[in-house]
């Protein structure tokens, strides 16, 4: 199963439309959390998901195609599911600024994270093999942050 998710704040029709088109040629189910009530015939649409449902779908997904939201990235990495990130662009009215582009620039190249800058290239990328990355719940960056916070609490 492929999971498409755009977060809880704003719809992202550029991504969902393209995934709807791609899903027409796939024989595996594509579940999409869309943040909008539009119909997409090739997708199993759930506009909003509660946290339990969201975690459940993330865990069972083979591949996640998502906006570059940190909640999605953290959730996917904690269970070791590969991610294709499509950043929202402010010029298209997809977010109030371009911070998702910065997020993708910083995260691309990490294990299990791929970036799509042009949605026309999404189909080919989705068809590729996506070996699951190791599940990551800690690392030197997180350890450093935790140690410092602990010293603040005293």
């Amino acid at each position: 199963m492929i999971f498409v998710t755009v977060g809880t704040q704003l719809p992202f029709p550029r991504l969902v439309r393209e995934m709807n088109r791609i899903a027409g040629g796939l024989c595996e189910p594509v579940i999409a959390q869309t943040c909008e009530h539009a119909r997409y015939p090739n997708l199993i649409v759930e506009p909003y998901m509660d946290a339990i449902r969201y975690g459940d779908v993330i865990e069972r997904a083979r591949l996640i195609v998502a906006h570059a939201g940190i909640g999605t990235v953290l959730a996917a990495r904690q269970v070791g599911v590969p991610l294709i990130l499509v950043p929202r662009r402010a010029e298209l009215g997809e977010h109030r600024n371009d911070h998702q582009i910065g997020t993708v620039r910083q995260l691309v190249g990490r294990d299990g994270i791929q970036a799509i800058w042009d949605e026309r290239k999404l189909a080919r990328t989705v068809m590729n093999d996506h070996p699951p990355p190791p599940a990551i719940v800690s690392g030197p960056e997180l350890d450093g942050l935790v140690t410092t916070l602990r010293s603040y609490i005293g």
């Binding site: 704040q9 939201g69 909640g71 953290l74």
Partner: peptide
């Protein structure tokens, strides 16, 4: 969302 997940991660 992301803010909540980050808080939990740390």
């Amino acid at each position: 969302g992301g803010h909540w997940r980050q808080l939990n991660a740390m």
